[in-house]
Amino acid sequence: MAGHAENTDIIVATQVNKWYGDFHALKNVSLAVKRREVVVIIGPSGSGKSTFIRTINRLEEHQSGEIVVDGIPLTHDVRNIEAIRMETGMVFQQFNLFPHLTVLQNITLAPMHVRKIKKAEAEARAMQLLERVGIPEQAPKFPGQLSGGQQQRVAIARALAMQPKIMLFDEPTSALDPEMIREVLEVMEELAESGMTMVVVTHEMGFARGVADRIVFMDSGEIVEIGTPEHFFTDPQHDRTKLFLQQILK
């Protein structure tokens, strides 16, 4: 694929629309994400931010518009979808670890069967990733034996094991007890510093302010405002943005 230089767009979504039945969930959503950029999407619940992030790796299908990920157009072609999924890692609100596999097996499964990496190598890399997220001692345990924060860190390691170019986070801390949110955010901050391209749906305004390169505000299925954190929090332009910020920063 051409154009790996810095500052080129790695995700380009153009005029994306999606309906659930008659409900218009995404309305002409257009967004370009640059390589190494951290984009945080915020907005009230039901605003379509999770739906949008899930269209990027085709967990949700969009009905019109165009999405191109690292030069690969997202079409009905299964090969394209699989290629895009290999480039993107995803972290879910409910972790979605595989409960019947150990932490180590959770992380090595996809590298072994999708990237065809040898077991020993996959395990060595998995251990490195567990070191990186700070819980190597949990490798032989099952997910059910871990705290929520630990599970989410395993989920991040599992996604990273596929060596994705982009990481998608769908409300990664929303299901966590308050004292565990910090440990997950720290891992995400470290990841952002390492230069990973990240698209993050979150309600953590501290993270948005401190880590995001740009903030996208969505409401009622459309993008209302896009801006840098300073701009966004100190000088919001749109009335809907102002109202939302008033409500959450009270």
Binding site: R58, R85, H113, A159
Partner: peptide, 11 residues
């Protein structure tokens, strides 16, 4: 979520 996690990993 189990199907989605498997899909997202490219399985």
């Amino acid at each position: 979520g189990q199907y989605e996690a498997a899909d997202a990993l490219g399985l």
